[in-house]
């Protein structure tokens, strides 16, 4: 599935909920369902500090695919993180660099990407793209 297709699928999933409570309950469920990161990767180097919640991001690169795993100490952030991972993981650096992440906005959760939220999500996405960009440059050179 392409990055776009995965995003569209998530948008469809969320369209089932017509109020914030349904959306949040689904997000919380996503957060609970996914033990996202091996505890050994929950180390200082992998920590993205938000003022409010913390996010750990671990990155592997094999066979021209970037594999992201991540976790957060706050469950709603974890739900958001799991969706971003689901969308971007297992793609080539080029696909990731060129991707346009529109699904968070479309499902009405754009407020979580505000820098003022300082939940670590925005920094995590930046970090993911930056890493893919670095890999892409390496491959091209």
């Amino acid at each position: 599935m392409t990055i776009k297709e995965t995003q569209d699928e998530l948008i469809e999933d969320f369209s089932l909920f017509d109020d914030w409570m349904g959306k949040y309950e689904y997000l919380i469920q996503l957060g609970k369902d996914l033990p996202l990161i091996d505890d050994k990767y929950k180390k200082e180097e992998n920590l993205i500090k938000g003022c409010q919640s913390r996010v750990w991001l671990h990155i592997d690169y094999t066979g021209n695919k970037v594999i992201y795993t991540a976790d957060s100490d706050a469950i709603i952030t974890k739900g958001l993180v799991s969706m971003v991972i689901h969308v971007l993981s297992n793609h080539s650096p080029e696909e990731i660099v060129n991707s346009d992440l529109y699904f968070i906005d479309k499902i009405g959760l754009h407020e979580h990407l505000s820098p003022t939220r300082s939940n670590g999500l925005l920094s995590m996405i930046k970090q993911m793209k930056l890493y893919a960009f670095a890999l892409q440059s390496k491959v091209n050179n």
């Binding site: 949040y24 469950i75 952030t77």
Partner: peptide
């Protein structure tokens, strides 16, 4: 064990 941020968001 609920994170304060989650409670604040709700």
């Amino acid at each position: 064990n609920i994170h304060p941020y989650d409670i604040g968001l709700i």
